[in-house]
Design a protein around this nucleic acid. Structure first.
Lengths: 343, 343
DNA sequence: AAACTCTGCGTTATCGTTAACACTTTAGTC
DNA sequence: GACTAAAGTGTTAACGATAACGCAGAGTTT
């Protein structure tokens, strides 16, 4: 491994001078600078970030902890984060909590060991409060993405989940549906609670009892959506819903898989709507009616907030940004005749 | 920041003893060990990975550089990498090259500064050779994922792109298509070259001139697919293809968007097939006929290879694993009647 | 009881970089 | 020409952890 000493020796200067050249500081004679740069090139010197980080107390690295990067929603967030981080000279370390507080805790710990300068977290649940509290206490900067946690005051970028769920439900109501079921993730997660609320509000506003709620234990997983839909199909005809609101894309896919299994047509026999778009799927076939959240913006904003803090905005009050979702009406709600999807 | 010294002081021992406790080494009396553990807990001590890394010459971090994490193919790779890395105690730093050699070079450099122990790279093109050579020379371990580079001997996990393209093309031939176009990414990338080859082989085997090739400049982007398809549609009827092989999922989506624009039905008026599944889209509606690559396995295998090397298998000859793709026949090729997609 | 072994701990030096300070030399001022 | 200022460079000491070695005391062997 080539060190700054090696470069210094080759260029006939001290390590300090090399350091100054590397960091573009003034007070180095042009000739010296060029000699050093040549030596750096010759030897292929790459500064040791660990040593620098140790000394300066920062690593120019941030962490991103989400539940599952393979969910397109989080993928887009990651992409947004990455773009901003890169522009600002930060590297991004990734972690998947799989909606588990314990795995989340482990990851955060690893990241603290790696001395990330700050973290972006989509907390796995209310149980995340403990870790977040300890982060707070240790003065580690972090920003919450997509989900809040009761009692944790921190920068936050999330969607308006109540309004989104209200919109989805109201849209189904406007199409004449009366028995609308909700397939929801674990209420550990704030988005699930808020989406439940929006659903309830919309139904109560028109005097319907919101009792067709299925809350799956394993938050936001495809398999859970399948199970919930199967249950709903077992209901006697007069109780069976005519429409389903899935509170995220994974659940919706599971729901649709279960419906297909039982030869229930969408939207003819059952309308289905959900949160969060699946971008490529929609491009291929604009089928699923969803409320789209600006996921990439979640990422860029959150990263920006974090980096702002790292750059010294210590004591500004936490910022909370709530981005509005947008209803995208497509085929699966039955709002319009199903058109030939491809062509 | 709490250091090992602070803990040592509180527990009434030397830093060395604390270090031994933290690293689970023997030769510490039980009573002492417990006292130290208590102190660690009390103070909330987290070992400083930078310091440790500096001393030991490794960071327990690996890098993953792909062209675009928002492509589901790479997302799955990332997920696979992450799983293995986590189990083996490594953190993963992510980078998107956007198919640009220059951006790739920058990322790799940042990662070298961060002293990653090794890298997983899906190289942006032939131009990546330079960086990879210098990695090689500096003794940095890396594994190529999904793409090889002429002249670079390194561990490699990729798909059988020639066979995959051959299968796709042969399948279209078996359905009676004679004029089959290829919409391909930049030949900078090995997958594009191999897929072109497979396409040519399949056509030449039945005596058809493979001349309906569109190679887009901007490798594997949706917009490029759209442009290429538009061009194909401008051809006079007797030259216009009746089927299109897109060499990746993004291109296929673009192609289909362009076809829809012009009210060309898929598969009735134009068959479309491509490389790489879009998992959620297929679950929602098994529409696109594709050859599926085991992307997640790409990730787990490559990560495993890298970590094996890091653990000391210095001088084993580079391993090259070529995983077979699997043809998944669905609607877009017209192989079977279009069935009602949802229900 | 002398010689050895093993346990349980501490000391010292080091990883690569840079902040803070110190030292020359040259240029500029009166 | 003495004095100050600035430019250009070097020295020293730290950042936090641990490898290598050292050393006291208890236990074991001969």
């Amino acid at each position: 491994m080539i060190t700054i000493q090696d470069v210094a020796h080759r260029a006939g200067v001290s390590a300090m001078t090399v350091s100054r050249v590397v960091n573009n500081q003034a007070r180095v004679a042009l000739a010296t600078r060029q000699r050093v740069q040549q030596a750096i090139k010759d030897l292929g010197y790459v500064p040791n970030g660990l040593a620098r980080g140790l000394l300066q107390g920062r690593s120019r690295t941030i962490a991103l902890v989400v539940s599952d990067i393979s969910n397109p929603f989080f993928t887009l967030i990651a992409r947004g984060v990455e773009d901003v981080a890169q522009r600002c000279g930060y590297a991004v370390i990734l972690g998947n909590s799989d909606e588990t507080v314990e795995k989340e805790r482990q990851y955060i710990n690893v990241m603290l060991e790696n001395r990330v300068d700050g973290l972006l977290i989509a907390p796995a649940g209310r149980g995340s409060r403990k870790v977040l509290d300890s982060l707070k206490q240790s003065g580690t900067k972090f920003v919450l993405i997509d989900r809040h946690v009761e009692g944790i005051m921190a920068d936050l970028v999330e969607g308006d989940n109540v309004a989104g769920a209200r919109q989805l439900t109201a849209h189904l109501l406007s199409l004449g549906h009366q028995r609308i079921a909700l397939v929801n993730g674990s209420l550990e997660v704030s988005t699930a609670r808020d989406r439940l609320l929006g659903y309830q509000e919309a139904l109560q506003a028109v005097g319907i009892q919101p009792d067709l709620v299925r809350i799956v234990g394993n938050s936001y997983k495809r398999e859970s959506g399948r199970g919930a839909a199967r249950e709903l199909l077992l209901l006697p005809d007069e109780q069976r819903p005519t429409a389903i609101v899935a509170t995220n894309n994974f659940l919706a896919v599971g729901v649709i898989e279960a419906l297909r299994e039982s030869s229930v047509r969408v939207p003819e026999d059952m309308a289905v709507v959900c949160f969060d778009d699946i971008e490529l799927a929609s491009a291929l076939d604009p089928f699923l009616t969803v409320v789209v959240q600006p996921a990439r913006t979640f990422g860029t904003l959150a990263a920006q907030f974090l980096i702002d803090r790292l750059r010294g905005e210590e004591d500004i009050a936490p910022r909370r940004v709530i981005l509005p979702p947008e209803l995208s009406v497509r085929a699966s709600c039955g709002a319009r005749l199903r058109r030939p999807p491809h062509g």
